[in-house]
Amino acid sequence: MISTYRRRKLANMLMLSLLGAAALVAVVPLIAVAAYVVLEGAGAINLDFFTQLPSPAGEAGGGMGNAVVGTLELVAIASALATPTGVMAGIYLAQQGRGTRLGPLVRLLSDVLNGVPTIVVGLFVYGLLVLTTGSFSALAGGVALGVIMLPVIARTTEEAVLQVPSSVREAALALGLPEWRATLRVVLPTARSGILTGVILGVARISGETAPLLFTAFGNSFWSLDPTKPIASLPVQIYNFATGPYESWHRQAWGAALVLMTMVLALNLAARWLSRSR
């Protein structure tokens, strides 16, 4: 009797400690990666980093100004395409799609699209836009990122719209508003912070994506804002510099990683804070 009891107690202690250890081990990589990025990257960050072009192969100095601007442009194109599309699809999922056969199917496909490897999305947009226009372009990169962002926005919009109490929607309908006005003028504003959270999460998700840009936006060593031309981006630049042979490139890559990670973590924390304060 006693020994069984002791054995159970012991097993309990052991297993609970293992679970605790697992939780601690799980956060070690984040700390390790963040520490290295900060330590190695801080030295590369200065005004030049944001204002200068990369210096020629192997030379010291220079910056990643074109990649910073390029990333912003790519994210802007993607958001401009994916936000209205995703919000509309999200409204469908939350309202008209209820009780139909199409609704659950679109929801499933949206989740599945969310899980498609991003490199495959890159191949897809390569065939769709790069082959047909004959050139890599910022637009192609933005479309690829938009495809990745779309399901995130659609599903968060659906959830945000479902969170709006049905009494609010009914009050609007009972006033004699047609459903579309009730949705756009009353339901969507009420769901605003939820939708905004989705957009921020979507931006966070795509701003660090590299694989879908390799065959779409490609890269560019010079300043460019032209959406029909190849464009530089921080993630692709990190990849190219990290796998290149020069010490100065490696330092720049760490600097870019610091900028990118700060941006992405800040966006994620903002989204969390927004969804909490609701």
Binding site: V168, E170, A171, A174, L175, G176, V186, P189, T190, R192
Partner: peptide, 19 residues
């Protein structure tokens, strides 16, 4: 829509538009 303009409604729970 035109019916509801002529026949208004007040609900059990007060439901002003939150925004």
């Amino acid at each position: 829509v035109s019916v509801r303009r002529r026949v208004g409604m007040v609900f059990q729970q007060p439901n002003p538009f939150p925004t």
